[in-house]
């Protein structure tokens, strides 16, 4: 029993960290319509910055700042924000798929950088291991994981409440206005570019926080942690949960990540012995099927966006959110 609780505490810590990143993405995509394909970059920036700022000296590599933990995690958030600011300015004119592939490129570039620049970021072997705040003071590992889960939940609630307030504020309405019709928003004297940038940077900082907590959890980060699969996982959580809905984002995380690891567990436990070598492959098939079937059953996610704008809906009830995402250009034929 204690084993099950211990595992659940551990699982929830990981899942809630991912949920924070999903909330950040929900601000960018769900509320503002920014197609960020580089989640892993901002997550990774937070994780690396935390370890480098807060960790001990590594001979021959960047580091040794030994900042206190709160400062280090704040540093991670700021680094992610600054990265997002630069990326946001460079990609200001891009929309939809074009923005997605450009931000995706940023994530690949960051992975390449940390993988190769050993003197800065430790190279492929990653950075550190074993340096968790207060671990020496709290001898019992289970108490420690409970404490850590508490910290993660506090962060998650903080982000959740902050975002809920934000989307209901005039700024939140502005975000959705820009998402729905940029031209109209501009006509009302708003600056869509500026607001989009703000939302992008804020969302990235939230991802940076998630990355920082992730690196705290493992006391380690390597290029393997920020491969494109992470971006895919975070997106799948948001889409399955329901874009535009913060509650959906959190529940989507639990479902996708829970399904991801539970499928592996169930196969190891129940698949015949002869299949054990193939369970990894079968697990991928199950994950793929779960995503496809969930989306077929609930195309707008399990918890679709609640429209917070009370008035000015269409004559027959709430306006269905228009399609967004992929744009098709008119071709270049003349």
């Amino acid at each position: 029993m204690i084993g099950l609780i211990s595992y659940l505490v551990f699982f929830l810590s990981g899942a809630m960290i991912l949920a924070i990143a999903v909330l950040g993405l929900n601000l960018q995509w769900g509320n503002t319509g920014i197609f960020n394909g580089g989640v892993a970059a901002f997550f990774g920036a937070g994780a690396y910055a935390l370890i480098i700022l807060g960790g001990p000296d590594r001979p021959g590599e960047l580091g040794g700042f030994s900042l206190s933990y709160p400062l280090a995690i704040l540093g991670g958030i700021i680094v992610s924000g600054v990265l997002a600011l630069v990326v946001g300015i460079v990609t200001a004119r891009l929309r939809h798929d074009y923005l997605a592939i450009a931000t995706f490129g940023v994530a690949i570039a960051l992975e390449s950088l940390v993988r190769n620049a050993e003197y800065l970021f430790g190279g492929a072997k990653g950075v550190r291991g074993f340096q968790r705040p207060l671990e020496a003071a709290i001898a019992d590992p289970f108490t420690y994981s409970l404490m850590f889960l508490g910290l993660v939940i506090v962060c998650l609630l903080g982000v959740y409440i902050g975002l809920e307030r934000l989307v209901r504020s005039p700024f939140g309405r502005l975000l959705r206005a820009i998402r729905e019709d940029e031209t109209a928003a501009r006509a009302l004297g708003k600056s869509p570019a500026n607001v989009r940038l703000q939302s992008f940077v804020l969302g990235a900082m939230i991802m940076g926080l998630a990355g920082g907590l992730y690196a705290t959890f493992y006391a380690f980060v390597s290029p393997q942690d920020i491969r494109p699969i992470l971006t895919f996982q975070i997106w799948a959580m948001l889409i399955v949960g329901g874009a535009g809905n913060n509650k959906g984002a959190i529940i989507g995380t639990l479902i996708v990540w829970g399904g991801w690891v539970a499928s592996g567990w169930a196969l190891a436990k129940f698949a015949p012995a002869d299949w054990q070598l193939y369970t990894g492959t079968i697990q991928y098939i199950l994950i793929g099927l779960v995503i496809v079937l969930t989306l077929l059953a609930r195309p707008r996610g399990l918890f679709p966006e609640e429209l917070t704008v009370s008035t000015a809906t269409g004559p027959d009830g709430p306006v269905k959110p228009p399609e967004r995402g992929t744009v098709s250009t008119g071709g270049q034929q003349s």
Partner: peptide, 19 residues
């Protein structure tokens, strides 16, 4: 559904096909 739902469904389809 929106196009993004289709994008992620296509990710799922890709996982199934590949494996």
């Amino acid at each position: 559904a929106g196009p993004l739902t289709m994008v992620f469904a296509s990710f799922g389809v890709a996982l199934v096909m590949r494996n």
